[in-house]
Design a protein around this nucleic acid. Sequence first.
RNA 1: GGGAGCAUAGCUCAGUUGGUUAGAGCACUUGCCUUACAAGCAAGGGGUCAGCAGUUCGAGUCUGCUUGCUCCCACCA
Length: 858
Amino acid sequence: MTTPAEPRTDVPTAAGAAVPEKPALEGLEDKWIARWKADDTYAFIRPASRAEVYSIDTPPPTVSGSLHVGHVFSYTHTDLIARFQRMRGKHVFYPIGWDDNGLPTERRVQNFYGVRCDPTVPYDPDFTPPEKPDPKHELRISRPNFVELCHQLTHVDEKAFEDLWRRVGLSVNWSSLYTTISADSIMVAQKAFLRNVVREEAYLSEAPTLWDVTFQTAVAQAELDARDYPGAYHRVAFHAAGGPVFIETTRPELIAACVALIAHPDDERYRSLFGSTVTSPLYGVELPVLAHPAAEPDKGTGIAMCCTFGDLTDVTWWRELQLPARVIIGRDGRIMRDRPEWIADDATWQVIAGKTIVSARELVVAGLRASGDLDGEPTPTLRKANFYEKGDKPLEIVSTRQWYIRNGGRDEDLKRVMLERGADLEWIPPHMRYRYDNWVGGLNGDWLISRQRFFGVPFPVWYSLDADAEPDYDHPILASEDRLPVDPSSDVPAGFSESQRGKPGGFVADPDVMDTWATSSLTPQIACGWERDPELFDVTFPMDLNTHAHEIIRTWLFSRVVRAHFENHSVPWLRCMISGFVMDPDRKKMSKSRGNTVVPTDVLERYGSDAVRWRAAKIRPGLDSPFDQAEMKVGRRLALKVLNASKFVLGAGALSDPAAITEPADLSLLAQLTASISEATRSFEAYDYTSALESTEQFFWQFCDDYLELVKERAYGPAEDSGAASARATLTLTLDIVLRLFAPIMPYVTEEVWSWWKAGSIHQARWPVPDEVVVREDPELLSDVSAALIQIRGAKTQARVSMKTEISLAKFYGTAWALAHLQAVAPDLRAVGRITGDVIWVETDGPIAVDVTLASPT
RNA sequence: GGGAGCAUAGCUCAGUUGGUUAGAGCACUUGCCUUACAAGCAAGGGGUCAGCAGUUCGAGUCUGCUUGCUCCCACCA
């Protein structure tokens, strides 16, 4: 009745078919981590054609940061797909990288070693960091020494990350590991940048820029974090001919930077003042009163002071009304020491000169109070202020020269193209596309990529100096591609010699580095060997899948779409699978700043990787999920159940002979198994790993609870008995297939059991197909048997007796069809129910029912 | 203020194009040492599908409104 698609020949493992006495989960991870590493089980073997490859772009974690369970879940989601595709026969290109460049690393190095980078300090080849950092006296060290320390520390961090990912069981290609600060990455980042410059997709511009005073660097729109920030409204009088004009401000320290008062053109209250002038309190600077539609009549008093620069509206006014720039805040976040030329009275200026913003504010308020220009007391308010996401002071706006890459923020045509690129991607789940559309639609400037920092990819650019040693920013000297990677601070541009560095008529290096996103926006190009390995690039790019959590759609996802659009005229990948967050039990987002993170190593140790992965697989793409320890226990129980059930199956004697499967109950099970294979496959193909797991799990539990119990006695029969052979062959085939269905989710326990009687890794085995089992029996048969079993067990439970209590008389009720099903497996039914007496069959129209008479307990 | 998602058992979640009596796991109750597993097995209780209104022979499912929660974006006078 049943023939296998192809006879299977099972080769015993080298160790022999060893089923342990007491299987345990402990120790499996160490054992298989070592084996997979030694055998390079997940190696990418380069095939001839793109169609044979499945390539995946994964987020390079910031190695100086810390990971929490949310990361583990998200990376697991990717691995589930990778393992499924590998078993489907794809050559899975699954590189991983470490994001080790950038500010987080610098900050960690500063704290770890107690040092600070000072580019003016010369390199010390014999430098060794202090054994015990002294936070009060940071050691000032040269940029090369600082960068060396960054490399040292990230190396240590990277080892810990690799250990974690290996424990989680990620089947990445470790030989394709990249880092964002490696020579290759620098080369890719510099080459792509140079091409952007040549095509005028990147440009240098002096403009007001959001500036972090702590880190003293520019930051990009994507790195902003709007936070509540306590402040106070100060009602301040400016002086006009007709009397005082009151404004409200939370930033009175900027009165000295004021360039105009501005109200809405239709605002009757101020219409008469337009075109006239007022003078500022304390400083007596004469200022025009102007009209602009961006002024909001219902904010404050309806008339605002426009400063250089208090907020982005000030920048708009400065630009559109062509106002002068009156900068008073320096890049260190302090009021400038020298009195600006528009302030007449030096004594007034000296009050705030050199002060921090906070103390300057207090001093100015005291001055206003003394001069009578403060109307009433300041009223506290909670306002939103822009912060750098890694900073803890509100951003200032300063005018600086920076490199930008066009992203559509200042170009409607490009914006439309970027939206179209987003629409070309397959989004899993689909609604994540709206996040992309929202972000791109709301861009209000190009992408600022330069950072005034040290550990990062340097811009491959110099500027020539004129006779006064002033740099010519309009004509940057670009490195030629064949010299990459270059460090302009030590390399010399063509046609110059090192002796001309910094000299009149000579040259100077661009001092900045690229933001880390500028490099990580090229991970598909870095990983796939762009410009370095054309054959690899051809078979891996555009990639098949991009995965990460939804918070970096606006940053990492979007920036890669931009770079691939410019460089490759394509999308970087075909689809994006977006993970949700793990929330704390109060349904709050897990984050380091909230202090509610769960350290993954603890959880992995307590429940095991298979259990944690099982839990991750229960979370569908895009959905947030609360973290619950109890859920892990269930996963652990399943892993253990797989071990125990396998022990039973193989303990009865593995029989890889599908032709021996002849009994109706056995054939019916295989019919159900076939349906499960189809369902799991369909689900995985649709990236619905959760449903794939659920269908397999449901089959497996029913297999254990009903089928295994039903055939237990028969399976123990003598080898020459055809019923016993049928049971054993069914058990063996079912285990073989179920293990493979579980393999992407629980790689450890499935590999362990596989090794008990098969050679090779289950992770290199093929995903099951329904054709492996050719069935002609009715899957309903076992369902009817289960229904009868429930009745028999129920009777015993109700009587509060043991399941092994004998039944002296059993009456089965049901349709002729159902009774036929039960009669077909009557011996099994007698065995599992311990029916020792008579069996009576009663045909009815109703559902299956069983009446039993229990023998008196022994 | 703009956008998105969610609301089904005490908890976490399924519930295809509307169609019998709304499901699962956990938790809970009760029973069972049953030779794969007591980290197990068996049986059971538990829901006004957030609320209101509508479409329909029929609504957890479709439409509108309301409420609540979460996330993203905007909001610095």
